[in-house]
Every structure is written in structure tokens, then in C-alpha cells.
């Protein structure tokens, strides 16, 4: 079951590789120390871009396995960070097992089950499994934190993968991988743009108690970069009208910002700086997918409601 890559996807992917090569040159010039954080970050970007390109180009199954793996790593990092009870070991095991099941619903294109499996069935079942262990101390916290993790790292992120199986053929030039690429590219570039504008012009802290590095200037700069970029890319990868393209650009920029902020609040609550060290220069995988946990479901439902 291979997916046909329309040539626009290849062109844009080529553009991403070119952009990254350019960014690498700039960073080499800006940060001469071989192990500076900026250089590490670029090296990790190469890995991310290479893996995403492979996953999107190979086959639908490969892409589903890849995004399932991202969910697994994100959930594992989350469960490593938060306090868990030893009595819940079996329950956490079931929570991990829900990942292949959730991506299986996507593989067989069962939308109804995909959309309720975690918010309804796991929401009801996992606390039951916790209750059966007989431990009531910390029950609400354990059930609540586990469900939050599953909703963010599995349910929300899996919306990215459901874009792959939206019905094809209605719009001749639009493919699942194209929509995924559009969402991934804008979400990540928005992160980068916010960072760069914040570094260049940042004066006014937007949320000093949650994330002191976020500024009004960075946020506005991010929106002002992502919105025109969305309009530029939309005709290649999406069925959107110009107005809708601008709207999704704004949606991604704002949602991505709050996804980022939401993870910052979590890290602050736990008293840590980075969520892990899987991606040198970025921190952990949560530091990279935080914006996506907000942009993926919102973009998906916008697209599905208005176009599919």
C-alpha cells in the first residue's frame, strides 16, 4: 500500500533540504565552536528532516509506524518525567499498548474509533484498572496525569497521521503526505521564527512566570512569518483558498505558541529545564513536539470540516 507522492511534495521536500543546508552554513558561520548548542541543534534537525522525508516517501505503513514511534517516545519521556505509582505499572503498560492500537485505527481508516478510543474508552478503562489494584492514595493525580499524557502524546499527535488517510482524489494535486508536510513545516518553522524574532527584537516578556524566553515580539514575528508562508505553500500542498490558507497559517502560529507554552508550564511545575536529551541542542522529544500537540488536532479538524 504505497502512497503516491505528487511532485509538489518532492519539490517542497527538496526546498526543505536546501533551506537546512543554508541554515547549516549560517550556523557554522555564527557559531564556530564545534559543540555549541546551535550546531548541535542543526545536527538534530538533519536527523529529524531525514527521518521525516524517509517516512513520507516510503509508504503509508512506514509513515504510520514512524509517527507511532514518535508518540511512543513522547509518552515515554512524559511518563519518565512525571511521578508515577509503582502500583500502576500494569496500567502504564496498557497505556503504551494503546499506541499501536490507535495507529491501527488510522491504518484501517476507522475514523469513528480513532476519534473516541482514547477520549472515551481509555478515559474510562484505565482508571478502572487503577482501582482494581486497590490503591486509592493519589488516584486522581495518577489517573489525571496519565490521561493528559495520552491525550497529548498519542491522541493529539496521531491527528498528524490521520491526514495521511483522508480520502484522496477530490483534489487532484493534494495528497496525505502533502498535508502532513504542510502542517509539520509550518509548525516547526513557526517555532524557529518565534525563536529568531525573539532573539533579534525581543523586549516584552509575554508570560514571564511560565517561559521567560517568550516575548511579544517573538510571537508577533512568528505569526507574521507563518501566515504569508502558509499562503505561499498552500497552493502546492493543500486544497485551501487563499483566505483559508491565511487562516490556517494564523491557527498554526497561535496554537503552536500555546502548545509550546503548555509544555513549558509542565516543565516548570516539575522543576526541569529540558524534557530529556534525545535530540542534542533541542532537549528531549517533548521539546520538539510540544507545538504539534496543539497544531495537529486543530489543523486536522479545520481541514476535515471544510474540505473532506
Amino acid at each position: 500500500m504505497s502512497i503516491t507522492l505528487t511532485s509538489p511534495v518532492m519539490v517542497i521536500l527538496g526546498g526543505v533540504w536546501g533551506l537546512l543546508a543554508l541554515a547549516t552554513l549560517v550556523v557554522w558561520w555564527l557559531a564556530p565552536a564545534p559543540d555549541s548548542e546551535l550546531r548541535q541543534r542543526i545536527r538534530s534537525w538533519w536527523l529529524i528532516v531525514a527521518l521525516c522525508s524517509l517516512a513520507l516517501m516510503f509508504s503509508r505503513a512506514a509513515a504510520l509506524v514512524f509517527f507511532g514511534l514518535v508518540s511512543f517516545l513522547a509518552l515515554k519521556e512524559y511518563l519518565t518525567l512525571i511521578p508515577t505509582r509503582q502500583t500502576d505499572r500494569r496500567v502504564l503498560f496498557w497505556a503504551y499498548l494503546s499506541i499501536p492500537v490507535q495507529y491501527f485505527w488510522i491504518g484501517i481508516e476507522w475514523y469513528g474509533m480513532f476519534i473516541i478510543f482514547i477520549p472515551v474508552y481509555l478515559f474510562l478503562l484505565l482508571p478502572v484498572a487503577m482501582v482494581l489494584s486497590g490503591e486509592t492514595q493519589g488516584h486522581l493525580r495518577a489517573a489525571g496525569t496519565l490521561h493528559w499524557g495520552l491525550m497529548s502524546m498519542v491522541f493529539s499527535l496521531s491527528h498528524l497521521a490521520y491526514l495521511l488517510v483522508l480520502p484522496e482524489g477530490e483534489y487532484p494535486h493534494v495528497s496525505g503526505p502533502g498535508l502532513v508536510l504542510f502542517l509539520l513545516l509550518l509548525t516547526e518553522l513557526n517555532d524557529v521564527a518565534q525563536y529568531c524574532w525573539g532573539k533579534l527584537l525581543g523586549r516584552h516578556k509575554i508570560s514571564p512566570t511560565v517561559s521567560p524566553s517568550k516575548t511579544v515580539e517573538g510571537f508577533v514575528g512568528g505569526v507574521a512569518t507563518t501566515v504569508p508562508l502558509a499562503a505561499l505553500l498552500a497552493p502546492w500542498l493543500t486544497p485551501f483558498s487563499v483566505f483559508d490558507a491565511l487562516l490556517t497559517g494564523a491557527l498554526i502560529a497561535v496554537a503552536g505558541f500555546f502548545g509550546d507554552l503548555s509544555l513549558s508550564a509542565l516543565k516548570r511545575d516539575l522543576g526541569i529545564k529540558d524534557s530529556g536529551n534525545l535530540l542534542p541542542g533541542h532537549g528531549g522529544i517533548l521539546d520538539r513536539v510540544d507545538s504539534l500537540t496543539y497544531t495537529a488536532p486543530l489543523f486536522f479538524h479545520f481541514t476535515r470540516y471544510f474540505y473532506f
Binding site: F72, K76, L79, T80, Q86, R89, G276
Partner: peptide, 11 residues
């Protein structure tokens, strides 16, 4: 942990 046989993933 000691006394269990089922490994559960954590970093």
C-alpha cells in the same frame, strides 16, 4: 523492579 517480571518502558 524487584519482584516483577513485566518491563515497563521509561528512559
Amino acid at each position: 523492579p524487584k519482584g516483577d517480571w513485566l518491563p515497563v518502558p521509561f528512559f
